[in-house]
Design a protein around this nucleic acid. Structure first.
Length: 568
DNA sequence: GCCGTTTTCGGCCCGACTGTTTTCAGTCG
């Protein structure tokens, strides 16, 4: 028996109880119990007090005892027997929750998507009290859509949707200000929808203008306080807009940034002080509602530092508030160490990239074009690398406020050799090694390739260590824990590739790397000037792993970078 | 089902919108 099984059992029990139309608080209690175990860092064998945990009581405790003694739960078995499996997909139907599903089952014997569809077609559903013609039609429509839409979209897709919406919002004069909120603002890898907070005195006009400006597939809800639509982008995507006054902006932004668990925790905190948080402000004991000029002021009111959206996850961030001051922020970033130019597959010259990095206030940067193995990317031969070094030195001499280092993103070849000889690597300031080929090799082969780079004294960093593309491909499946050990042993930097397609390493591994004392570089891997802006979202992502400023080598001053990395 | 320095019952985060209702339940985030 392991903890994961217990957690999954609680979640299944909650699901089945929900389908039975049970008291939502009872359902919630099982979910909460699952969450308590999830958040506890200890393994099952290390938990001698599991039944005493806050959130585990008589009912949930009995399930644990069952599982420990018999390997299965009587309660879950009963529920599985009672609830038809075919009901499970119905919870995914918008507009259907536990109560309605239970009613449909009890009155019409609905036990599957198909039987519900038939009941709707025979107009049986609209005859039930609490249901009507519109509900029946909507259900029929939703049942047809079921399974055709992606539940979540990857951050890189959401990002372009957010930018497209922002562009339209900026054109609407009735909007005083706005901000994206929700999971995108928290730098989540996947999002099920997009949220915006809009300050306006005229919600009705803004609502009309938003609807006419965007490719709306369906309007889900439209009131004075909110607009919910489905947009017809590359994929269908849900977008919610909330209309608030200027004074409500900070609390509304906080509320709709979430996460849900973060909000619950904040509201409990407020409640313990006799206050009540809503999206409109903080209601105090005397009945007045206090509003705030910023989220920072809101947190300060509760004696908390500004908690960045990225770490607003499961509520534990509130207990870790004293660690927040150490977190890396985008203001700490002094350089970007992975970018491409027209010398390989980038879109801008060395000088243009340098100007763009200067504009960002960086004190140093590294040009890292591809190497000749990567023909599709016009990778550099040794001869061209030497030419490029001369060119970079020349451009560098033109600027006295930024240092441009000569680097490379060198391929690690399928046979485990490196694309350049050591004598050439020696001439470079900063050497990145990465894998771009033969992803389907065995883990052993992949690790051999990575080890070749690890043990080479001239390699400084491994880029995008797993090769994953979020929501699209897994990557080449290296043993990352081993990689972290090697990085520690050979003093190599591991990259957090900040391109939102990648975010590689992912948070789980970033946590492990930092714990092991391995240094991380946050890079944009920019192939164009505007991609240098990925640094913002990349740093937000880094915060999710609680990366400290000192862990991130891009925050080091130029002198320290030269001393400890370039000339180590 | 869980919890408790307002403690063994009554609340559990809070509010918007829709559709079915004539005052609110259900769903959603």
């Amino acid at each position: 028996m392991n903890k994961k099984t217990i957690i999954r059992t609680f979640e299944k029990i909650a699901l089945y109880m929900e389908l039975l139309g049970e008291n939502p608080f009872k359902v919630g209690a099982f979910r909460k119990a699952a969450n308590v175990l999830e958040l506890d860092p200890r393994s099952l064998s290390e938990m001698d007090d599991i039944l005493k945990l806050k959130g585990i009581g008589k009912g949930t405790g009995a399930v644990i005892i069952d599982l420990l003694e018999k390997g299965e739960s009587d309660l879950l078995k009963e529920l599985e027997h009672e609830v038809p499996k075919g009901l499970l997909p119905l919870l995914k139907v918008p507009g259907l929750g536990g109560k309605r599903i239970a009613k449909l089952r009890e009155t019409l014997g609905i036990d599957s998507v198909e039987s519900l569809r038939q009941a709707c077609e025979l107009n049986k559903v609209s005859e039930l009290p609490g249901f009507g013609k519109k509900t029946e039609e909507k259900l029929l429509h939703e049942l047809q859509q079921l399974g055709t839409r992606k539940e979540k979209l990857p951050v890189w897709q959401i990002e372009s949707i957010v930018h497209a919406i922002e562009e339209e919002l900026r054109r609407i004069p009735e909007i005083t200000r706005f901000s994206v909120a929700g999971s995108f603002r928290r730098a989540e890898e996947m999002s099920s929808d997009v949220d915006f907070i809009i300050v306006t005195d005229n919600p009705a006009v803004v609502r009309e203008k938003v609807v006419s400006a965007l490719p709306v597939e369906e309007t889900v809800a439209a009131g004075d306080a909110k607009l919910s639509i489905v947009l017809d982008m590359t994929d269908a995507v849900d977008v919610d807009f909330r209309f608030v006054t200027d004074e409500q902006f900070a609390t509304a932004l906080h509320h709709f940034t979430g996460s849900k668990d973060h909000n619950v925790k904040m509201r409990q905190l407020a409640k313990s002080k006799g206050m009540k948080i809503s999206e409109y402000g903080v209601e105090q004991e005397d009945g007045t509602t206090k509003t705030f000029s910023s989220e920072k002021a809101f947190f300060k009111f509760f004696d908390l530092p500004y908690i960045p959206p990225s770490v607003r996850t499961n509520g534990t961030e509130i207990d870790r508030a004293d660690e927040i001051a150490e977190l890396v922020t985008v203001q700490d970033i002094r350089g970007d160490f992975h970018m491409h130019t027209t010398w390989s597959d980038g879109g801008y010259s060395i000088r243009e990239m340098a100007e763009a990095c200067r504009a960002k206030g960086y004190t140093h940067m590294v040009i890292t074009d591809h190497t000749h193995y990567l023909k599709v990317a016009n990778g550099l031969t040794p001869e061209r690398v030497r030419e490029q070094i001369a060119e970079i030195r020349k451009v560098n001499a033109e600027f006295d406020d930024i240092e441009i280092f000569c680097g490379t993103e060198m391929d690690i070849l399928p046979d485990g050799t490196l694309d350049f000889e050591d004598d050439l690597l020696q001439e470079l300031d900063f050497v990145i090694a990465s894998i771009h080929s033969n992803f389907n090799q065995s883990q052993e082969q992949i690790m051999e390739r990575l080890y070749a780079a690890m043990k080479n004294p001239y390699v400084h960093m491994i880029a995008h260590p797993t090769g994953r593309i979020i929501g699209q491909r897994e990557g080449y499946n290296p043993d990352v824990m081993q990689l972290i050990e090697w990085a520690k042993e050979h003093h190599k930097i591991l990259e957090l590739n900040g391109n939102p397609h990648r975010f590689d390493l992912c948070t789980e591994y970033l946590v492990a790397a930092q714990e092991a004392g391995v240094k991380i570089a946050i890079n944009t891997d920019a192939h164009a000037i505007d991609q240098l802006n990925y640094m913002d979202i990349a740093v937000n992502y880094a915060q999710k792993a609680w990366l400290k400023k000192e862990t991130v080598v891009n925050t080091w001053p130029l002198e320290q970078f030269i001393r400890e990395i370039i000339r180590k």
